[in-house]
Write a protein that binds this DNA or RNA. Sequence first.
DNA 1: CATGAATGAGCCTTCATTCAT
DNA 2: TATGAATGAAGGCTCATTCAT
Lengths: 225, 225, 225, 225
Amino acid sequence: MGDPTLATTEATPDARRRDPERTREDILTVATAEFAAEGYTGARIDDIAARTRTTKRMIYYYFGSKEGLYLAVMENAYTGIRTLERELDIEGLGPVDALRALAEHTYDHHTSHPNFVRLVAIENVHRAEHITRSAVIHELNSTAIDTLERILKLGVEAGLFRADVDALDAHMMISSYAIFHVANRYTFRALFGRDLLDDERHEHYRALAGDAIVAALTDVRQTGT
Amino acid sequence: MGDPTLATTEATPDARRRDPERTREDILTVATAEFAAEGYTGARIDDIAARTRTTKRMIYYYFGSKEGLYLAVMENAYTGIRTLERELDIEGLGPVDALRALAEHTYDHHTSHPNFVRLVAIENVHRAEHITRSAVIHELNSTAIDTLERILKLGVEAGLFRADVDALDAHMMISSYAIFHVANRYTFRALFGRDLLDDERHEHYRALAGDAIVAALTDVRQTGT
Amino acid sequence: MGDPTLATTEATPDARRRDPERTREDILTVATAEFAAEGYTGARIDDIAARTRTTKRMIYYYFGSKEGLYLAVMENAYTGIRTLERELDIEGLGPVDALRALAEHTYDHHTSHPNFVRLVAIENVHRAEHITRSAVIHELNSTAIDTLERILKLGVEAGLFRADVDALDAHMMISSYAIFHVANRYTFRALFGRDLLDDERHEHYRALAGDAIVAALTDVRQTGT
Amino acid sequence: MGDPTLATTEATPDARRRDPERTREDILTVATAEFAAEGYTGARIDDIAARTRTTKRMIYYYFGSKEGLYLAVMENAYTGIRTLERELDIEGLGPVDALRALAEHTYDHHTSHPNFVRLVAIENVHRAEHITRSAVIHELNSTAIDTLERILKLGVEAGLFRADVDALDAHMMISSYAIFHVANRYTFRALFGRDLLDDERHEHYRALAGDAIVAALTDVRQTGT
DNA sequence: CATGAATGAGCCTTCATTCAT
DNA sequence: TATGAATGAAGGCTCATTCAT
């Protein structure tokens, strides 16, 4: 719901035929859910087709192959997140507050879009061989990186931030924290009995996401000790 | 070879028969590499057998099924990391230095045992359904958590650390950073062109692992600003 | 050929594709022969497929599994015999002649449909676990039982038949005689050197089938001694 | 119990080794139960070995192969029934009573030795190919046939029995009735809801066994009508 | 556009049997 | 005599994909 791109939505009851765009989107929605749930190898074309209001033949008509469908799912997912990234508004905020806002926004996004995080994990299991070949994904420019660069530049110039941690490093730190909560949720719970996505802990972990990145980037030499 | 548990080793050339322990380990070694490389569903029993000095039949003789083999691989992997955790020596270190040492040790371990990290990612794709059923894994107590608890206690009592971040939270932060480097290496490189496991950056990221967790746990109210 | 349901027919030479009904029946015919010849466990899906004009894959497409195929064979066989049962015409016959006609008809049917008898024997080896689950077979009403009930009622009312042998008992006696000739033919021949299905003895055994059941049901108290 | 030859007995607790005869019998007992329960193809050497106090290797040592074991089971079973046949005492009985006693004895035997009946059914599924090759079974002379010949001779001479039904025919009729109760018990129950081996009906069916064969052999021309 | 039918390659698993000790 | 380890052949089943209508 909320995210028409990734959520597992049911096919509209009335089988509206003769609407190619709708058919395509229907397949994509179902396939996203299936690939995110079962992995690339584990996903079944038959299962996807069964949950669609069209047939298996249409999947091949629109996407050519299982890999083609998977790639379309990945491109769709990455396009979605890039769009959401742009929604973040940090105008008028100082570097520290902006950084914190970015981290919290990322945390919110990832925890509310588990399928995206799962797809990324799955793609990594396959050594990113699919998205590496995708022109679409390469053309997507990460707003997050651009934003981070500006924030870091301001912060360093103000003597607040370390100068030896660049935007990609910061992005890595922010992402790793947020992704872990979704990607490693199950083994973490199995081993330690704690559900990282428990609603009760959401605020705590959200705030910690901001605190941690701000603390990590703060130039300790400035504060003295 | 460094880690006989996880590395992909070739079968010993001379097919020494009648050595069940060797046969079992041989299968386990090859299977670990295969599952880590291809995922649970993607792994092929035939391929595993082919790279072993025994036959496919023996896999079923010793492990019963594909799932049984996979579970044995996971149990072996987790047992291995728990053993390595115990190697960390932080005797005589203060809480800050101990925390930093633990983070760097974790970073070193994960980046030098990519198969372990990949297996954990794969198990999460399957919602940890296998290890949840494993008695062996449930019985493994994490030394890391115990160690962290002691460190945090000392740090909090000394007024150095935040009191609202417990050992599991700290473990989550340390792990997420280290795991991300291995688990998300491929998509990160595909998207941003940077290899997180590049030797040239190893020291930088290793140090950052320590800095980040120390900074995150440090009670900022103490230092003022 | 006489019985398209049970006989082992060869696949039609010209592989006419796109005729699902034909494909299904082709598989069923071959499978009936295979299961009757080799038993449930002994039957080989590969062998069945090889004697079909389709492939092994199609067997699973239509019947789902070996057990599904076997069940379809059993349902088809029982449906066939029920149909043949209805062909018996005993209109206008008195109870004694009707009973004799029914016994002879059963004897003829079973000896001319050995595969049906063999399938029943095989199903009993498996404790009828398959047909017990079959809704189709449960819905089949036995005309033979209904007919027998009417015959017995008339015979008893006329003081000709014993009143303590009901239709199921009579059916059991008639069936046991006829089935034995087919089901135990081989051990009987091996032990005593006599082929119960020898053409030369057919008339003798056919008449005996009628004589025996009539004699068994006749109320001896009536005839005195 | 009752019949040490066919019943499924547990291995004696104390693993008395170095007793070849005991080992052989142990295997035979377990194998009889397994083959009777699962059929020739369905029986598993591993399962038999597991329920024995010896190992799989011993089965091959004593019986050579699965078929050898099966044959030994069959020979043992047939030897057992021949022995029991001889227990019947009809001295001093007239032909009618002797015939009735024989039929009832057969009925009692078969219904109390279901494994024997099942093995016969299984052997017939395989077209008696195994016992045909057995010298042991060919050498067994059926007392029942000899006894029947004498009975029939007396009865025919006394003008009581039909002369055109010989001992093998009579044996066939007696056996078919008794065997059906055990061999077709499951399908009969599945189709008609009646358990032919129900204790409540035992006496009825036992008496009917005698009545039926006596009636069938009685020369009706003598009694007039 | 749409669909049921069909396919070939390959996957996991099992079984009777034998070997080395 | 006894036993755990090992094996080759085959068996049931599944999957992505394509064809004919």
